[in-house]
Computed example of a mutant assay.
Amino acid sequence: MNKLQVQSLPLKDVIEDIAIGLKTSYIQACSEYIVQIPEEWGQGSIRGINFEGGLGLLIYECKFYSDLEISFTVGETHPLKFLFCLEGQLMHHFEKSDEQHSLSQYQNIIVASKGLDGHVVNFKENVYTEIYSLEIDRKTFNAGMSCELKKTKPSLRKIFEDQNAAQSFYYNGLYSLVLGEIFDEIKVQSFDHFMKKIFLESQSYRMLVQQLIQYDDDSEGNLDKQILRKSEANAIREAVEIMKSEIDSLSSLHSVAQRVGLSSKKFQNGFRHFFGKSANEYLQGLRLNLAKDLLINTNESLKEIKDKVGFNSQSYFTELFKKIYHNTPSGYRNEHRKKKRLD
């Protein structure tokens, strides 16, 4: 295993230490600092940028050819860290603890070390890993938020008020769909340096707000969380593919929800978020749209079409079809054929 030692703050000096450890140099693009991973070590880059008010952002987009450990040991109070794993895997532990915290795709953790203890992160060999890390100097950050922090919920206040690091802090979860959209926006932005810094600062604060909303949601202790997670969004997409491929034989939507690992409530919430309708309404739409295509493009009987699109009742199929297309299935077919002959 290769090991790097980072013994500096702020992020400019963090990037410089990483570059020294990798036996390379870093690039300064105005207030952004970038180290490209040397070919003998791996691929990708690590970027850092500091903003006013004690907030900074580190972005790891890299793959290492051997296991790599980076130890952050500064000899002073470390920043509060919000880490998000977009891809790959990362292991984290506090400097004086052997307890490992695993961070995989769509997971996030909030960590603060105790006293002057540092952080140790491990990258697995030949695994492309994408990590966003919000870094907050609590003393600087709190100076501008003292009144607001006093009036916020205790569960949120405790993350920030321990600015002298009397206790360690650890939280893990699955990051929300909104956070996933923020990361996507960051990855495709193409602003110049002036606009880029403003954009990244605004996105960093959005990340912080959304993470705190999510943390508050998790702190409520409900088994069925109110906020849709990125992993759950992927489960909804998987459910859609199941519906399409098994449209003629689906026994129940409850079984689909179980197969993709969602509760019935989260399953329905997901469909309403993405499609503005319930899962049952979405499935009916798929069935009726397929039925319309079969009526137009095949000579299959109404019973064959009814069976192929997954309706048990001919009368119910006719009722729903007429509600959407303002005609019966047979009338719709005849009308289309008549129009085609006239053309």
Rank of each mutant, 00 (worst) to 15 (best):
N334F: 04
S301Q: 08
N334T: 10
P329Q: 08
N289A: 12
G331Q: 03
V260G: 00
S330V: 06
V309K: 00
L283N: 01
R341N: 12
S313G: 02
S330N: 15
D293C: 09
I305P: 03
Y316I: 11
S315N: 13
R287G: 00
Y325H: 08
R259D: 14
I324R: 15
S278I: 06
L262E: 07
S301V: 08
N334I: 10
K306V: 10
R333S: 00
L286C: 04
S264D: 13
L295M: 07
L286W: 04
R259N: 11
S315F: 08
L286E: 10
L283C: 01
R272D: 12
P329G: 01
R341E: 10
N327Y: 03
Q314Y: 14
G270N: 05
Y316W: 09
E335P: 03
I296V: 13
G276D: 08
T298N: 08
R259A: 12
F267M: 04
N299W: 10
L294R: 12
N269Y: 00
K292W: 10
L283V: 00
L290M: 08
H326F: 10
V309C: 01
G270W: 05
S264G: 11
Y282D: 00
R259P: 06
I324D: 07
L262A: 06
K340E: 13
K306N: 14
S313Q: 10
L290Q: 14
D307V: 07
I305E: 07
H273Q: 14
K322H: 13
R287P: 06
I305M: 02
F317W: 05
H326V: 07
D293H: 09
V260K: 02
E300P: 03
K265I: 10
L288Y: 06
H336D: 00
N312T: 14
K339A: 13
Y332L: 09
N269S: 08
S278P: 06
Y332V: 03
A291T: 02
G261E: 06
F317S: 08
N280M: 10
K339G: 12
K266Y: 01
S264I: 09
I296T: 06
K339Y: 13
G285P: 02
S263F: 05
N269W: 03
K292T: 05
G276T: 05
R333D: 02
Y316T: 13
K308R: 14
Q314E: 15
G331C: 05
L302F: 12
L320A: 09
I296M: 09
K323L: 15
T318A: 12
S264Y: 08
A291P: 02
